[in-house]
Amino acid sequence: MSSAGARIAITASGVSRHFGELAAVSGVDLSIARGEIFGLVGPDGAGKTTLMRMLAGVLRPDAGSITLDGIDVLADPEAVKPRLSYMPQRFGLYEDLTVAENIFFYAELFGGAPAERRARTAELLEAAGMAPFRRRLAGQLSGGMKQKLGLVCALIHQPSVLLLDEPTTGVDPVSRRDFWAILYNLRESGVTIMFSTAYMDEAERCSRLALMHAGKVRLCDTPARLKQAMPGVLLAVSAPDPRAVRAALAEAPGVLGVLLKGDHVNLRADSTARAGEFAAILGARGIAYTAITPEAPGIEDVFVALTGAQAAS
């Protein structure tokens, strides 16, 4: 392994996969450094799961190459398995087995010293807030608990690369907080984490993220730089009836995009100088508004600006 290879945990180049006529993933290039928390963001059907499965070596790409920790995943999928942990959207738990038995089973599949495993089990259960539930059947856990148990099972063999496919979908806020605490701890110890999500607020938590849409990676950078990369500026128009504001300004000159946000409308415009013009249009139509202020773009705004699609928020 070269010194450059030692710093790169995951590479994908030109990775494509078709299902019949549908190009689920086309020409994806990624390079993820060791110790990163890398986010893959995109709406349902963007190809996130297909890409994750190919990285994990359970689905073969039609074209392209993938390495994990310097190992060619396509040439030798078995060699990466001890270093890798892949957690699909729904982690496969044995519902007739208890929490402890599930962990034991997955630990045995990967081998390892029993004493070490016991210590790690205790530590992970504690971190997940699940220590009191060791003897409960997995089938009787809540959704969030199941997902945390999945994470514990996925981490029991101390992987160096962790692939999480929408790990927090349907997980309550408390469990989600535990979840992220565990992930941040792992990063401290040098584990590379790649996760996909349709939640834009989670996207803000990663060191870098890729915006994926219709099988392609549209942009890949740090959250801060992605926000800067958004074409135009963002103006927030607070109003009692945001829908009326959207209707009035959607076609106005200088407006690049409109995004409805509960109590306000995010206008993407070519310049902040347009604020006066917009105020005039609203005034002329008699639409009430409280303020028009420049706003720092969020990941969702960037995503919408780049794809024209509105992801789950």
Binding site: A56, V58, K81, P88, F91, G92, L109, F110
Partner: peptide
């Protein structure tokens, strides 16, 4: 089964 596939 998917989980078992990603194990050694």
């Amino acid at each position: 089964l998917e989980q078992i596939m990603v194990s050694p």
